[in-house]
Design a protein around this nucleic acid. Structure first.
Length: 477
RNA sequence: GGCGGCAUGGCCAAGUGGUAAGGCAACGGAUUGCAAAUCCGUGAUCCCCGGUUCGAAUCCGGGUGCCGCCUCCA
C-alpha cells in the first residue's frame, strides 16, 4: 500500500510510513463539550472517519483515539475573567459544568452513530486524566520548559523550545508583537501559555503540586495521546484552526517532555463555509447536526456531502448541494437494490476485470492524500454498470457485491444493508397497501383516471410509486 | 500589519505541462397508459491581464474576489 499525505509541519505531501509497519497510531481532536457542534465540526470528523476506514482498506491496523475535551479551555480572556466556556454554559443553562459536559457528550455519540462513524478505540475525557497531565507539567518544570508563578500558575516557556512556531509558520517575534498588552505580567514571554491555573472557585478543580485548580487547554491532548498511543504518533488530525495555538503547543509540551518526535504526519482539514461565507452563529448559518436532521435530510446524505470534497480544500455547504447528495445516495441505493441474480444467467467474462479495475482506482485515489472526490468516480461507474447490466450469474453478482462492500467500507453509507433492509413498518401500512392495490385494480381495468387519482392521494400522504415489470413497489418519501 | 489557502459548466466537485473525471439539476430521445426509476444523448477552454513554452486550467508576474490563522472555534 502506498498512501501519501500532506503534512502541515513540513508543508509537503510525503509517502506515509508508520513507525511500526502495518500499525497506525492516530489521535484526533474531538469535540469540546460545552455546546452542540456545528456541521463544520462534523466535516472534520467525517474526514477522520474516511481516513481511518481508508487506512484499514489499505491493510493497516489502526489504533485510534479521539479526545473529549470536558474542561473549559483556559485562554487569555478566561484567565482574566476566571470563567471558561463550560463555566459560562453552566451559568447560562443552570446546570453544573459536569452536567453540561455529559449532555453534549451524549449528543455527540448520538450523531457519531447516525453518521456511521467507526468507533475509535478510546474516547478519553480530559477530566479523567488529570494525574497524567500533572505528571507532564512536573516534568516540564523539572526540565525548565515551564515555570511556576507567585500566584501558583504554571506556564510553558516558549523560548525554551526553539521549534515553537514551526507548525504554524509563526515567528515568535511576530507573535509577541501582536500579543495583547496590559495583563499577565507574571508571564515571562507574551506567548507563554498556561499549563495549570490555580483557582479554588472554579467548579471543576483538582489538587496539584501547585494548589487546587484546573489544567490548561492544550495539556490534555499531550497527556491522553501519550497514555493511549505512546510518545510517538503516526497521525494527528484536527481542523485548520487547531494548527495554532493548540497543536503548536502540544508539540512543545510533548516533545519538551519526551525529547522524541511527537507526530509523523499532521493532517488538518479546511473549514466548511455556508453559502460561500464563514459560518456564523449570528448569521444563523452555524447549523448543528440536529438542525440538518430537523429539515428532513438523512444522516447518510449529510455524510455523503461532507465526504465528497477533498479535506484540504474549503468546502461550500448549500442546501442545494445537500439535495444533490440526497439524490446521489438514493441513486446508489437503486443500483444496489436493483441487481438481479439469476442462476441460469451466463457469466460476464469482462466483469471481473472491470471490478478489479474499479477496486484499484478507488484505492489509488484514496492513497493519493485521500482524494475521495476522485474515488467517487469509481463508485458511480459501478453504479452505472450495475444499472445497465442484465441478470447477473451467481458468481458475477458476488463479485459486484464484493466491490460495493469495499467501496462502502470507506464510504460508510450502509449500501448493501440499506438495499436488503425490510421497509420500516408503520401503523397505516395496511391502509396504504389497500390504496395501492385499488390503484393496481384500476390499472388492470384500464381506468387511468381512477388510477391517477389514487396515485395523487398516495403522493399526498408521502408515498412514492414505481411501476416495475415485477409489480408495483412503493416507498415513503 | 504578519503568515497561508482557494477561484473549473446552473449547483457540488476531480484534474499541477499535452488539447477539461464524477455527482446533482436542466434539456432531447428510449421505456411507461401517464408517471417514477433506468438507459442513450446534449453543455464549460478552466476569475482578469501579461509572460514562459511547440503546447498551460495546470508554471511565473501583476490584478480582482473570497476564505483561514495570528492565543474562543473542526
Amino acid at each position: 500500500m502506498a498512501f501519501r499525505f500532506h503534512d502541515t509541519l513540513t508543508g509537503a505531501t510525503r509517502d506515509f510510513e508508520p513507525r511500526e509497519p502495518g500499525v497506525v497510531r492516530m489521535y484526533n481532536c474531538g469535540p469540546t463539550v460545552y455546546s452542540s457542534p456545528q456541521i463544520g465540526n462534523y466535516r472534520a470528523w467525517t474526514f477522520v472517519d474516511v481516513l481511518r476506514r481508508s487506512l484499514e482498506l489499505g491493510g493497516y491496523d489502526v489504533r485510534q483515539v479521539m479526545n473529549l475535551t470536558d474542561v473549559g479551555h483556559l485562554t487569555l480572556d478566561e484567565i482574566e475573567s476566571g470563567e471558561d466556556k463550560l463555566e459560562a454554559a453552566s451559568r447560562i443553562e443552570g446546570k453544573t459544568a459536569w452536567e453540561i459536559a455529559q449532555h453534549y457528550i451524549d449528543e455527540f455519540f448520538e450523531a457519531v452513530a447516525r453518521l456511521n462513524f467507526a468507533r475509535a478505540d478510546e474516547y478519553p475525557r480530559a477530566t479523567d486524566h488529570i494525574a497524567e497531565m500533572i505528571e507532564i507539567v512536573e516534568g516540564l518544570i523539572a526540565s525548565e520548559h515551564a515555570y511556576v508563578t507567585d500566584a501558583g500558575n504554571v506556564y510553558y516557556d516558549v523560548s525554551s523550545f526553539p521549534a515553537y512556531g514551526h507548525l504554524s509558520k509563526n515567528k515568535l517575534e511576530d507573535l509577541d508583537a501582536g500579543a495583547r498588552v496590559g495583563v499577565l505580567d507574571e508571564k515571562r514571554h507574551p506567548s507563554d501559555f498556561a499549563l495549570w491555573k490555580r483557582d479554588e472557585k472554579h467548579q471543576m478543580q483538582w489538587d496539584s503540586p501547585w494548589g487546587r485548580g484546573f489544567p490548561g487547554w492544550h495539556i490534555e491532548c499531550s497527556a491522553m495521546s501519550r497514555k493511549y498511543l505512546g510518545d510517538e504518533l503516526d497521525i494527528h488530525t484536527g481542523g485548520e484552526d487547531n494548527v495554532f495555538p493548540h497543536h503548536e503547543c502540544e508539540i512543545a509540551q510533548s516533545e519538551g517532555f519526551t525529547g522524541k518526535t511527537f507526530v509523523r504526519f499532521w493532517l488538518h482539514n479546511r473549514h466548511l463555509l455556508v453559502d460561500g461565507r464563514k459560518m456564523s452563529k449570528s448569521g444563523g448559518t452555524a447549523y448543528s447536526f440536529e438542525d440538518v436532521m430537523a429539515r428532513g435530510y438523512s444522516a447518510r446524505a449529510l455524510r455523503y456531502l461532507l465526504l465528497q470534497t477533498h479535506y484540504r480544500l474549503p468546502m461550500n455547504f448549500t442546501w442545494q448541494a445537500l439535495d444533490a447528495a440526497t439524490s446521489a445516495v438514493a441513486s446508489l441505493d437503486v443500483a444496489v437494490r436493483g441487481m438481479v441474480e439469476d442462476a441460469t444467467a451466463a457469466g460476464d467474462a469482462a466483469l471481473s476485470a472491470t471490478c478489479d479495475r474499479l477496486d484499484a482506482a478507488f484505492l489509488a485515489a484514496l492513497e493519493d492524500d485521500l482524494n475521495v472526490s476522485a474515488a467517487l468516480a469509481s463508485v458511480h461507474e459501478l453504479k452505472s454498470l450495475a444499472n445497465k447490466h442484465g441478470p447477473f450469474s451467481a458468481s458475477d453478482a458476488a463479485r459486484v457485491r464484493a466491490t460495493w462492500e469495499r467501496f462502502d467500507s470507506v464510504l460508510g453509507l450502509d449500501l448493501l444493508a440499506t438495499a436488503a433492509a425490510e421497509p420500516e413498518t408503520h401503523a397505516d401500512d395496511a391502509e396504504i397497501q389497500a390504496l395501492v392495490d385499488a390503484r393496481t385494480a384500476a390499472r388492470v381495468a384500464r381506468d387511468w383516471g381512477r388510477a391517477d387519482e389514487l396515485r395523487d392521494e398516495l403522493a399526498a400522504r408521502g408515498i412514492k410509486l414505481e411501476d416495475g415489470a415485477d409489480g408495483v413497489r412503493w416507498s415513503r418519501a
